[in-house]
Design a protein around this nucleic acid. Structure first.
Lengths: 231, 231
DNA sequence: GAACGTTTGTGCACGTTTTCACAAGACGTC
DNA sequence: GACGTCTTGTGAAAACGTGCACAAACGTTC
């Protein structure tokens, strides 16, 4: 049982999206949903939804669909969201404050368990209802609340130091918002969110579009077809 | 020439990372670099670096490596970063302000060309050096500066409306920070950054680790696999 | 209780991405 | 200018992810 079948990374990345949609549907009293409907809402194709959900087990009913509440429960269980995870934020600058103040943080199974910064001027102030403490107290904060997830919201140059401090404090999962690749020991997971990278990917597509339009005065508009993102 | 060889999406996503590293190396007077070194700094493997760079052309020198400055130029060109892209931010809340104030925005080829919000109380205030204007002026802002990239930093419920407004204003690339799937017409690119999703992915790994540890007093440790990030 | 419409779960083929492995080219040395 | 060392560039294999298509299962209706 503990040797649960491994879920592909691509599926793991989509489950949170399904979860959010299903929770929303549940809130508006939708009790069952088909893979087709869920796919539409998630912006993916129905076969993918079914395959993804099949990794959780055979929780659908043929000819009917999936029971929303049950699915929510199963996804939450699989993602480890049956309890609330406290996270610690390193860096109380613009980004750190925005993250701390982010609503729908708590809704999704996370609470801000602490914020630390290296700058004494910021220590003591309260952001998102949590008092900023000094970086040197990180271990204390982490241990007091048994925190295993850390978020790095420092400038790029401070990111590796923040990562080291988090690891030293006992954190085993890190979400890095700084524009730097951080190195961590094996056994520690790292997620990355880099604003500039995302924008640069968009710029690439944007530029291709422009080049394509320049190159061909005759290509015309790609006609109609409903929706879907990304091009 | 406009029919440039298509670069795989996975590669496009890594080029910005190489670009940042190479720029940093250039700043500290490193003039040439091998795929091995670049791979180390980017946290990927050397063969991948070489294959990625090979899509740009054969710009390396065998037995020597790549010339940093030249590579920087080529990647910038390929990503369309030879000129600065103005972006418009929709939503001047916590996240919008943090984004507007984000340094290393300008460094990477982007400037905040405008911020709009639907809330009159926020209109007129200045964040990140830019005055917040009303959502109704979006088209005007977009057209005045010929903006093609928009960033959605609204609450989830307002995201689709923001997307529609951006598209109506003529924006063709959107980066969505709201926790909602948005629908756009074909021909518009969408990038997504969802904080909660990233955290939930980490929670999954975190929970697996815990389960693995619990489940197996005898299963032993998975042994080798010196991996880098993510476990 | 059989026939029918619906929707799941999944085998299979296809496309994309990663990794390996090595020939080809560049440089330095004698 | 031949040799050895280094590092790129790239075929080919392996791994991974996606989407189709359809049998199996369910509920409903008559």
């Amino acid at each position: 049982m503990q040797t649960r079948r491994r879920i592909p990374e691509a599926t793991v990345a989509r489950l949170p999206v399904y979860l959010r949609i299903l929770s929303e549907q549940f809130d508006i009293d939708v009790t069952k949903i088909s893979s087709e409907e869920l796919a539409e809402l998630a912006g993916v194709n129905a076969a993918k939804v079914r395959k993804d959900l099949s990794y959780l087990g055979s929780y659908g009913t043929r000819g009917v669909g999936y029971e929303v509440e049950f699915l929510v429960y199963q996804i939450r269980r699989e993602l480890g969201l049956t309890h609330n995870w406290p996270v610690v934020i390193v860096g109380a600058g613009n980004m750190g404050q925005a993250l701390a103040g982010y609503n729908g943080f708590g809704d999704r199974g996370f609470t801000v368990g602490g914020i630390v910064d290296i700058d004494d001027a910021k220590v003591g102030s309260v952001v998102g209802g949590v008092r900023v403490r000094h970086l040197s107290e990180l271990t204390q904060v982490v241990e007091a609340r048994n925190i295993s997830i850390g978020v790095i919201a420092t400038p790029g140059l401070a990111a590796q130091g923040a990562a080291d401090a988090l690891v030293a404090a006992g954190v085993t999962s890190i979400l890095n918002f700084a524009p730097t690749v951080i190195n961590v020991p094996p056994g520690v997971s790292v997620g990355k969110v880099d604003l500039a990278v995302e924008l640069q990917i968009l710029a690439y597509h944007e530029q291709r579009r422009i080049n394509a339009a320049k190159g061909s005065s005759l290509v015309s508009v790609p006609g109609e077809s409903r929706r879907r993102a990304s091009a």
